[in-house]
Simulated scan of single mutants.
Amino acid sequence: MQQAHRRPIRQVAYFCDDVRAAARAHHAAFGSGPFFVADNIPLARAVHRGTERLLDHSSAYGQWGDVMVEFVQQNNSGPSPFHDLFPEGSGRHGLHHVALWVDDVDAEIARFAAAGAPCALRAEMNDGFVFAFADTTATLGHMTELYAPVPSLTGFYAMVAEAAASYDGGELITTIAFS
């Protein structure tokens, strides 16, 4: 197992009302991007705090220096790890999570839970990719996302970084789809 101190942050993610507007604003302020937007990301399963729930969300992914930046919006109403930090209807938004690559998502969920950071979400995409949020808000003020660096993920991260390295000021936002 990787040592905890050897787990660099791979992504910083913000909850917002509109991922495209947030991406444009972040680009204007910090030069991040370009951004790849996935609308209504399909999930095979989402278990929020022990209860299976619908979670319809959209995300914008771009590069911000050496780290990926994500903007995420929830498209459906109801409880979620996003609404845990930013209550529905509050109009609040901001830093939601940082992401780490781990060897075994379920083992890390258990490790974080044993350390006082319970699992806020364990989700599976249609292709079997698993991600989870450990609720580290009591100690860090935000969630910590956990996922294994499988080829589809590392390839996506590389594609976003390469797009940033070759960005010439053209189209800032490209719509993509996850199956």
Rank of each mutant, 00 (worst) to 15 (best):
L54V: 10
G89P: 02
S90W: 09
R45Q: 11
L54R: 13
F86D: 03
W64F: 15
V69W: 08
P87G: 12
F35P: 12
T51W: 00
E70A: 13
A46N: 07
A46V: 10
A46T: 08
V47Q: 04
R53T: 00
S59R: 08
F82P: 00
F71Y: 11
H48W: 13
S80C: 02
A28Q: 15
F71G: 04
W64D: 15
P79M: 12
P79H: 07
S77G: 15
E70N: 10
N40A: 15
V72W: 00
S58T: 08
A28H: 15
G89L: 07
I41A: 07
D56L: 14
D66W: 02
G65T: 07
E52N: 11
A28M: 05
E52L: 10
L54Y: 03
V67Q: 04
G33C: 07
H48V: 15
Q74H: 04
R49K: 13
R53C: 10
P34I: 06
F30H: 15
E52M: 09
D84L: 13
S77H: 14
S32N: 10
R49Q: 14
P81A: 06
A60E: 04
F36V: 00
R92V: 04
H48G: 02
V47T: 12
A38C: 06
F86G: 02
F71T: 04
S59C: 10
F30N: 14
P79Y: 05
H93T: 11
P42N: 07
W64I: 06
H57R: 05
F35M: 11
H57G: 08
A60F: 01
N76V: 10
F71C: 02
L54E: 09
Y61E: 02
G65A: 14
S32L: 12
L54M: 05
A44P: 11
N75L: 15
Q74R: 00
A38K: 03
W64T: 02
V37N: 10
D39F: 09
G50K: 12
R92C: 06
R92Y: 06
A44W: 07
